[in-house]
């Protein structure tokens, strides 16, 4: 099968005046359709930059980025859903109207979109909260709404930038399980940026490891743990091997 995302030798340099800063050197990896790829690395390793290149928000200075195949076409103007570390809900809009924002921007039919938004809110576990305002919801619930917003226009690719980084540890574990369920149900291709090593292994069908200073790609491997994943897998031996492998690459042993 042809990869949905194909990155080969991608380079990104930031320039400010005469100074140059190499944000990414030689990023090469493939993402198959329906994969959940975790990009893991320390702060400043260029993982957010890479995500923004995939989103079409940044140019790149070398290499190839190709998204979409003949069987899985990709329209960059409407096939991207984004989730950030902060929920970034509009505080003057009710939850369902927040979820509808992308459909308004794209000019999708209002009635069908609303039905879809309500169905998605039910899927992310927010049934009954449609008419609440964001401040009436906990941080975890707000992030669930943000995930529904990223799915509402039925994008082919969902980009997540440390979406659970601001949540407490317990909520985070719960959201990990929820995300895996949502991913299975929606069948989306997801690229998930995190600095949590065990989170990356737990979520990813594939893990791409990036190291900082100079930013470069250190590893790229498939995670051979069965689905559905369960929390007790975190204690099994293979899970430990994967996390040790990443710790080693990041020089933390």
């Amino acid at each position: 099968m042809e990869p949905f995302i194909h990155l080969a030798g991608v380079r990104k340099v930031f320039r400010k005046g005469a100074t140059e800063f190499l944000a990414i050197s030689e990023a090469t990896f493939d993402v198959m359709p329906g994969d959940l790829v975790a990009l893991v690395g320390p702060s400043g390793c260029g993982k957010t930059t890479l995500l923004k290149i995939l989103a079409g928000l940044y140019d790149y200075d070398g290499g190839t980025v190709r998204i979409g195949t003949g069987t899985h076409p990709f329209d960059p103007s409407r096939d991207i859903g984004m989730v950030f570390q902060q929920p970034l809900l509009l505080r003057w809009r009710r939850i369902v109207d927040n979820v509808l924002l992308p459909t308004e921007l794209l000019g999708l039919p209002a009635k069908a979109s609303r039905e879809r938004a309500l169905a998605l809110l039910a899927m992310v576990g927010l049934a009954g909260f449609e008419d609440k305002y964001p401040y009436e919801l906990s941080g975890g619930m707000q992030q669930r709404a943000a995930i529904a917003r990223a799915l509402v226009h039925d994008p082919k690719l969902v980009l997540m930038d440390e979406p659970f980084g601001a949540l407490d540890a317990l909520t985070r574990e719960k959201m990990n399980l929820e995300l895996l369920r949502i991913w299975k149900e929606s069948g989306k291709t997801i690229v998930f940026v995190t600095h949590g090593i065990s989170e990356a292994v737990f979520l990813g069908t594939r893990v791409v490891v990036l190291t900082a200073g100079p930013a470069r790609m250190a590893d790229n491997f498939e995670v051979q743990l069965p689905h559905p994943r369960t929390l007790d897998m975190k204690t099994n031996e293979r899970f430990g091997e994967y996390t040790r492998r990443i710790y080693h690459l990041l020089g933390m042993e």
């Binding site: 923004k52 928000l57 409407r78 991207i80 950030f84 902060q86 970034l88 992308p102 921007l105």
Partner: peptide
């Protein structure tokens, strides 16, 4: 929020 602007930009 700059991130919110990014979200809007990806949807043109």
């Amino acid at each position: 929020e700059p991130d919110l602007l990014d979200l809007v930009k990806t949807l043109r």
